[in-house]
């Protein structure tokens, strides 16, 4: 393991994350669904925990986190394939979003995905992509309610392959 997981954070955060009470998944096997067809035939969707939303939609609730710091908004938002830089917003208190507000592709690379489609690397692109806000100290609602709804939405869109990335 050469990638340093704690390079870009304060010492307080690094020490906290190493002692953090993560949800214990050790008793359960890692789920596994291999692709049923070549990547070049797959419909692909992006999911980001960067807290992205459309300017016309409701932002993730940061005010409640400001008053209750052990709470993080557990909802998700939909982003159309055609979203533009002017239409996208980010609500997340744990990373600097100004970079993504110049070019959201540095976290949510829909433009590059279109290029890969043009090259024939993937079969198609989902008309809708998803984002949630990844600061979830108590992820029960995210795991038990939001994520199953996201799965249902992605399946309804006919997605084969989901590329997730963190904030």
């Amino acid at each position: 393991m050469s990638v340093n997981s704690f390079k870009f954070m304060s010492r307080t955060l690094a020490e906290s994350l190493q002692r953090w009470p993560y949800v214990d998944t050790s008793g359960e096997e890692i789920p596994w669904k291999p692709l049923a067809k070549p990547v070049a035939d797959c419909k692909v969707a992006l999911v980001s925990s960067g807290g992205f939303y459309r300017a016309v939609d409701e932002p993730f609730n940061l005010d409640r986190e400001r008053s209750e710091p052990l709470w993080g908004d557990p909802s998700f938002r939909e982003l159309p394939r055609s979203i533009t830089q002017e239409e996208i917003r980010a609500a997340h208190l744990h990373y600097e979003s100004s970079h993504a507000m110049r070019d959201f592709n540095c976290m949510f690379p829909l433009g590059a995905l279109e290029e890969l489609l043009a090259q024939g690397r993937i079969g198609s692109i989902s008309e809708t992509h998803l984002s949630f806000m990844g600061y979830q100290p108590k992820p029960r609602v995210l795991m038990q309610e939001t994520a199953p709804r996201m799965a249902e939405r992605l399946r309804g869109l006919g997605v084969d392959l989901v590329l997730l990335s963190s904030g």
Partner: peptide, 13 residues
Amino acid sequence: LVARVLEKARLTT
């Protein structure tokens, strides 16, 4: 955790 739920729902992640 989200990836695990999606994969369990038969989506490749």
